[in-house]
Design a protein around this nucleic acid. Sequence first.
DNA 1: CCAACATGTGAGTAGATGATCACATCATAG
DNA 2: CTATGATGTGATCATCTACTCACATGTTGG
Lengths: 120, 120
Amino acid sequence: MLVEVSVQQRNDDEIFAALSDPNRRAILDLIGEHGEMPSGDIASHFEDVTRSGISAHLRILRLAGLVSERRDGRYRLYSITSSPADAVVGYLASVYRNSLHQLTAAMEEATAREADERSA
Amino acid sequence: MLVEVSVQQRNDDEIFAALSDPNRRAILDLIGEHGEMPSGDIASHFEDVTRSGISAHLRILRLAGLVSERRDGRYRLYSITSSPADAVVGYLASVYRNSLHQLTAAMEEATAREADERSA
DNA sequence: CCAACATGTGAGTAGATGATCACATCATAG
DNA sequence: CTATGATGTGATCATCTACTCACATGTTGG
């Protein structure tokens, strides 16, 4: 069990470190909105970072398990991986255990808003 | 609206940056578990970081709005602030909109587990 | 096979960051 | 008031990190 915790801890490190960079969060936003997309397309949305930089970011996101890569010919298509979010939510749930209701309220609101947008 | 978004963005930057450091997350864990506690008590739980270092970490957590400070005599008591977690959950909900159900499931499970532990 | 394309990678660099030490501040007990 | 305790802060330093550039790798069309 202790080992599991320690492994989980290291995974947390990678995930939070990956999320700490604004450009990486922007990449996640982009992929989340457009769905699966190739590295080059992602890079073309960034004026201040070269393709190389984006490639490095994608590597970090991939190693953290936040995105997954699929090769199609000369393209590498990136998409959002959903499971790691559980780790983040789990962490928050543990720290904010005394105000979990606020978290669930936020989640429910977000879910409702999403459902609303979907039906619109 | 754009201004609001930009402000929110900057707040996100601070929050995610604050959460990116393992020691700061450990501090949050500690405060979350013990409830309100003074700076020195927090520092005494860390072998590899001096009191000064912990103090600097607390400053970052405070500026990010993740903890709040209350002065009582010569002590400064720190406690968890709950609202900023909403920002994190909101961000995750936006990126993982296509698998929100997984997030809510994780939240519900966490809530249930907590309620279970509470009644035990 | 070869040229053009899509992308990852290694070297190198400027800037951010986490840590310490020494010191400043402020509260309190005597 | 003065010594002690609790804590924050400025200077400094080593390390990490997010870039860029040049190059390597693998793919496809002709």
